[in-house]
Simulated assay, not measured.
Amino acid sequence: MISASAKIHPSSIVEDGASIGDNVSVGPFCHIGSRVTLADNIEVMSHVSILGRTTIGAGTRVFPGAVLGAEPQNVHYKGEDTELIIGSGCTIREGVTMHTGMPDAGGKTKVGDNSLFLAYSHVAHDCHIGSNVILSNNVMLGGHVVVGDRVIMGGGAAAHQFCRIGHHAFVGGLAACSNDVIPYGMLNGNPGILGGLNVIGMTRSGISKSDIHAVRRVYKMLFSGDAPINEVLKRIKPEYQGVEVLEDLFEFIEADSHRGLSSAAKARRN
């Protein structure tokens, strides 16, 4: 169904079955597949392909050359019905690619609200991206990567499949995330080395100075010594019960992981 208020350029193809909301604009030479749902007030510029079972939230802007909802780049994909879900208010710049999921991993690639994807960044199958995220030019996410809210990744950074990048983390340009990055962490280099905390990002998000100081104290205790991080965490965790800003950090460290944690300690061993 195409809303009467939608504007579709005559050179574009919208397949039967697509759902196009109010005040949607589709520019020239675009291809909108039959299982695509575009919410209200979306702008799709020229030469954009939106394929597969893809849903895009209201107010998102898609710049020329983007390909959204194509099949996963995975040799095990056999045409199963999987999907891509993109939130509201996102900006998707030139040449960005986002793929649908794999059936053995839930079948969904998800992107939150108000995120910015700069030119030629790539979101692979089964990634789960939070809200208010920025992926700079040429950022590459392998399959199954989880990116928390308010993460910023610099140009050319890459994340190995199954990596987790915690909320409010900062990943520098050309950095390689081979292991998980803790919430609030700041990763640089190849291989990626945890070099401190994203204090600027925390401040901009409205986190109080007292909470920032609490995270700093815990960070130093976790990563400055030679003892295993989980042992240190067990020792200090009771002291910080009820400190909300640390709860996600503790849960992140204790959660099961395919990749292990990035840490400054790894730099000393290399």
Score class of each variant (00 low, 15 high):
Met1Glu: 13
Ser5Ala: 06
Ile8Lys: 04
Pro10Thr: 09
Ile13Thr: 12
Val14Gly: 13
Ala18Ser: 06
Val26Tyr: 02
Gly27Tyr: 14
Pro28Asn: 06
His31Arg: 08
Asn41Gln: 02
Met45Lys: 15
Ser46Met: 04
Val48Tyr: 07
Ile50Trp: 01
Gly52Pro: 09
Thr55Met: 03
Ile56Cys: 00
Val62Phe: 01
Leu68Phe: 12
Ala70Thr: 09
Pro72Asp: 02
Gln73Asn: 02
Asn74Tyr: 10
Gly79Val: 10
Glu80Tyr: 03
Glu80Gly: 04
Glu83Ser: 14
Glu94Gly: 01
Thr100Met: 09
Thr100Trp: 00
Gly101Lys: 05
Asp104Val: 03
Asp104Ser: 06
Asp104Trp: 13
Ala105Pro: 00
Gly107Asp: 12
Lys108Arg: 15
Thr109Gln: 03
Leu118Gln: 09
Ser121Tyr: 01
Asp126Val: 10
Cys127Pro: 09
Val133Ala: 12
Leu135Tyr: 03
Asn138Ser: 15
Asn138Ala: 13
Asn138Lys: 08
Leu141Lys: 02
Gly148Met: 04
Asp149Ser: 05
Met153Cys: 08
Gly154Asn: 01
Gly155Gln: 14
Gly156Asn: 10
His160Gln: 08
His160Val: 05
Phe162Glu: 02
Ile165Ser: 00
Ile165Glu: 14
His168Tyr: 15
Cys177Gln: 14
Cys177Pro: 13
Asn179Trp: 01
Asp180Cys: 05
Ile182Lys: 01
Gly185Gln: 01
Asn190Pro: 04
Gly192Glu: 14
Leu194Tyr: 13
Asn198Met: 09
Asn198Tyr: 04
Ile200Cys: 00
Gly201Asp: 08
Thr203Trp: 12
Arg204Val: 13
Ile207Leu: 10
Arg217Asp: 14
Tyr219Phe: 15
Met221Ser: 11
Asp226Pro: 10
Ile229Gln: 00
Val232Leu: 06
Glu239Val: 09
Tyr240Met: 08
Gln241Ser: 09
Gln241Gly: 09
Asp248Trp: 07
Ala255Thr: 15
Asp256Trp: 05
Arg259Glu: 10
Gly260Glu: 06
Ser262Gly: 12
Ala264Arg: 06
Ala267Gly: 08
Ala267Ser: 11
Arg268Ala: 14
Arg269Val: 13
Arg269Pro: 01
Asn270Glu: 06
Asn270Trp: 08
Asn270Pro: 04
